[in-house]
Design a protein around this nucleic acid. Structure first.
Length: 430
RNA sequence: UCCUCAGUAGCUCAAUGGCAGAGCAUCCGGCUGUUAACCGGAGGGUUGCUGGUUCGAGUCCAGCCUGAGGAGCCA
């Protein structure tokens, strides 16, 4: 049995064994300060020459960064310790040596760190981010699971594009057929919703876009809920509830990690319902009032999204987009067919779009016409069209990009730090 | 794909067209309360690559390579 650092408070005054790695070391002539980490936290182990004797003290002289060690000693409360506790070392055993660890306590460039991502994640800050990511994913799953949604995952190998526009990663599929890595579970989700009522899928998504920005990865994780018998308002209510629930959960369970990241939590505490909801028409008007010349009919760029979101202290929604800039499966507004019943959720503080979705096109004839207009091969979509042939109903849902949500909640500059091994244009290692 | 910027010691960065430097890391020595500990010493260089201008190029010019930020596209 050994003790995890996160549980140290329960062992005050007792002798404990910690198993971990040496994170850093400071030394004086007759006293060593060894910073240990074990994946659950960091703690300072104090080794005095008088307590352990010359031999063990000298052996600890040359312990280097990331040496794996087993330390036994007494847990002691100490106001000088950042975590409130220290260990007075009785014995120390080296499990595995570490020489010339490449990530030193000083600064490093992003490229250098990404080439050593497998080691970079040992860093306290990176650990905090990955813990928040874990909490966000759990919060998302709990949100849907406690509301009657069924997890029904969609395939990663797909026969054709879900949305004709973006580029796909091809893969050889047995003999003569090419498969593509999924760029959205959307279409399969609709079929699943017709079977199970309310569903969600949660998995990796692949986009072969040559995007080179702080908001893009080629491989990212997306959660996509879909509801039968739902309209645009139901979709917006669901998106709002999800975001509020996730932020509350992180504030509740991961305060310590947000502190490590120096996140201004007052910005997150402001994330309360209701979120402002604004039509595309209104958004265009606002942009022009703010001095950005934006023409009706275009899609928002980064600066446009930032300008819109900056006017509020919580996420905002833009709905009723021009149909021309949205996917073929979006339902047109019956009152104004040039508009699509889609919605985007924009995160505050300039983080941009975190959710995109809306009400789907449920009418058979119109869907077939749209597939033709978009020059998509109808044979590949016959199964999807079937959903309109056999008991079609109003339905809708959305997709939420996990990495963008993590970046926003953690207050990060770039989504590359939000996933253990980011895949980007020009980056496939490690 | 386009635009902008960057590339010098293991790492982070200095160096007016004129001797290649500092901090950290590593190694040696000192220190019983350090918090990216501190103090003293040592080793460490094909200045991304190729060519050009010049008495002389890390520095100026051209091309290429690699990366970053942004655009487009999207979550």
């Amino acid at each position: 049995m050994h003790t995890y650092i996160e549980d140290i408070a329960a062992h005050e005054g007792a002798e404990v064994t910690l198993k971990g790695w040496l994170h850093n070391r400071r030394s004086s002539g007759k006293i060593h300060f060894l910073i240990l980490r074990d994946g659950t936290g960091f703690i300072q182990a104090v080794m005095s020459k008088a307590a352990v004797g010359d031999e063990m003290f000298k052996a600890a002289d040359h312990l280097s960064q990331e040496t794996s060690v087993i330390v036994t000693g007494t847990a002691r409360a100490d106001t000088r310790a950042p975590g409130g506790y220290e260990i007075d070392v009785k014995t120390l055993e080296v499990v595995g040596e570490s020489h010339d660890y490449p990530i030193t306590p000083k600064e490093h460039g992003v490229d250098y760190l990404l080439d050593r991502r497998h080691l970079w994640i040992r860093n306290e800050r990176q650990q905090a981010i990955l813990r928040v990511r874990h909490e966000i994913i759990n919060a998302v799953r709990d949100f849907f699971n406690t509301r009657g949604f069924i997890l029904a995952d969609t395939p990663i190998f797909t026969p054709a594009a879900c949305e004709g526009t973006t580029t796909l990663f091809p893969a050889q599929y047995f003999e003569e057929q090419t498969a593509y890595l999924t760029q959205s579970g959307q279409l399969y989700n609709e079929a699943n919703a017709m079977a199970l009522g309310r569903v969600y899928c949660f998995g990796p998504t692949f986009r072969a876009e040559k995007s080179k920005t702080r908001r893009h990865l080629t491989e990212f994780w997306m959660v996509e809920p879909e509801m039968a018998y739902a309209d645009l308002n139901d979709v917006m209510d669901l998106a709002e509830g999800l975001v509020v629930s996730v932020v509350e959960r992180v504030l509740d369970k991961r305060r310590r990690e947000l502190g490590v990241l120096e996140r201004d939590t007052s910005k997150l505490e402001a994330v309360k319902p209701p979120f402002p909801r604004m039509s595309y028409d209104e958004a265009v008007k606002r942009l022009n009032e703010q001095g950005l010349s934006f023409e009706w009919g275009g899609d928002f760029g980064g600066p446009d999204e930032t300008m819109l979101a900056q006017q509020f202290d919580r996420p905002m929604m833009v709905h009723h987009f021009p149909a021309a800039i949205k996917a073929f499966y979006m339902k047109p507004d019956p009152a104004r067919p040039e508009l699509a019943l889609g919605v985007d959720v924009l995160a505050p503080e300039g983080y941009g779009e975190i959710i995109g979705g809306g009400e789907r096109l449920a009418d058979l004839d119109l869907l077939v016409a749209r597939i033709r207009e978009h020059h998509l091969p109808q044979e590949a979509f016959e199964w999807y069209v079937d959903l309109r042939r056999y008991g079609t109903v109003p339905h809708g849902g959305f997709g939420m990009g996990i990495e963008r949500v993590v970046a926003w909640i953690c207050g990060l500059e770039h989504v590359r730090e939000t996933i253990p091994y980011p895949r980007m244009l020009y980056r496939l290692y490690p």
